[in-house]
Nucleic acid binder design. Structure first.
Lengths: 217, 217
DNA sequence: GCGTTAGTATGATCCGGGTCATAAACCTCT
DNA sequence: AGAGGTTTATGACCCGGATCATACTAACGC
């Protein structure tokens, strides 16, 4: 048996390949699969939510910009993951904007179809709850970090978090952190310079490794 | 028709009196109503979640302590509100601890009963999703604030948020902020002194009012 | 291969909010 | 009424990370 060599499908977060909602079910409930370019805006802060979104291919970033143009990344979503449900189910405007980080494909489904799907599929509904709950966990974690820990602690926490998602055996394995210094800064509320300095310091102290510019942990 | 004068039931957040799950339904699914004292710990960070919780009377605070003993408040829950579902549905350890702020009564229900209740009651299940989504909205809001705004902005945002929950007509009405400086500090990741100074400054600039020590906005 | 851009690196400077100390005002309980 | 605890208040000092400037380097498009 041969494995498909289609490299652009290779996931950054392997376990995330499992879709929140399977493709067949999405089709049954009139979801449409739309092609997207890199850097395409999917929705903007303040707008009303009308659709359910699920990444099929590519990556999506949710972010907010403050008036000085500084960005804070609220989340990054990989293939199989859904996003933007909170404003849809909670009936409030989008608190952040969403943009594609690379070209790909996105499932979209109207709220009414989505709700009907949940009504008909209790297991999917519970799966959705799990997704929402994990997202709350992530936000609690970051909030705790940003509110009271120094740069080194924040970076270690976020690196460990993503490692636990990437690695099959997080305790034995070493992984390459799939983010730039700027992305780490945007996720932890730090400045690029601070991330660069802190990462360097941690390397000197043997707390992580650098391979070229790649961070290994 | 007479209204009950039982004052201790009077809610700080009136609209929250509506229960996530109605009492009758809770009883049907073997939930038990337990009396709690003030400052009673309901669960601790790191423990495994086994029960669904819903406040019947009193208030509950979820918080984390960092090693220096500094607290960050992850949320405060009033009568009718549920709490602690994320670790229950997401299968991860509690990211924070929960303590009662006053004596009261709390509903507890086992996970299996809770899941069965959701399976049997689609409307409640959707209501739960709404609650989870609103909680994500709150966390996104606070995270955005803590990651990139100054004390004045943070305080205004949180005060406006709670005002919108308390007031019937937030735009016309003035409300008394139901928190001490310390509580505001714990919710915004600031120090008491900073909150005190910032509130004073804002009063001088006419951005809010002080009645004795109470903050009016 | 070369030009362009994104990402990394490093030093100098600054300042907002944390920290510490001390005290006053207020609330609560007996 | 008085004691004890909690909340608010205010000043002095300090320091970690933001800011600004500048440069190097790896990666990418053509």
């Amino acid at each position: 048996m041969r494995y498909s060599p289609v490299i652009q499908y290779f996931p950054i977060f392997p376990e995330k390949r499992k879709r929140v909602i399977p493709a067949t079910l999405l089709q049954t409930y009139n979801a449409r699969l739309v092609k997207v370019d890199k850097d395409q805006i999917l929705f903007e802060e303040g707008r009303r939510a009308v659709d359910y979104f699920q990444v099929e291919e590519g990556k999506v970033k949710m972010y907010v910009l403050n008036p000085e143009g500084q960005e804070f990344t609220q989340g990054i979503f990989a293939p199989g993951e859904s996003f933007g449900e909170p404003p849809l189910l909670g009936d409030f405007p989008y608190p952040s904007s969403a943009i594609t980080l690379e070209a790909g494909k996105i499932w979209r489904m109207s709220k009414s179809d989505f709700v009907q799907l949940l009504r008909d599929n209790f297991d999917i509904h519970m799966k959705l709850d799990q997704v929402l709950c994990r997202r709350l966990q992530y936000k609690s974690m970051i909030l705790t970090e940003v509110s009271s820990y120094d740069p080194e602690h924040r970076l270690l926490t976020i690196i460990r978090y993503f490692k636990s998602k990437i690695a099959k055996h997080p305790s034995r394995e070493q992984v390459i952190v799939p983010f730039t210094r700027q992305q780490l800064a945007d996720m932890t509320g730090l400045r690029v310079e601070t991330v660069i300095r802190t990462i360097k310091k941690m390397e000197k102290e043997g707390k992580l490794m650098l391979e070229g510019r790649k961070i290994k942990y």
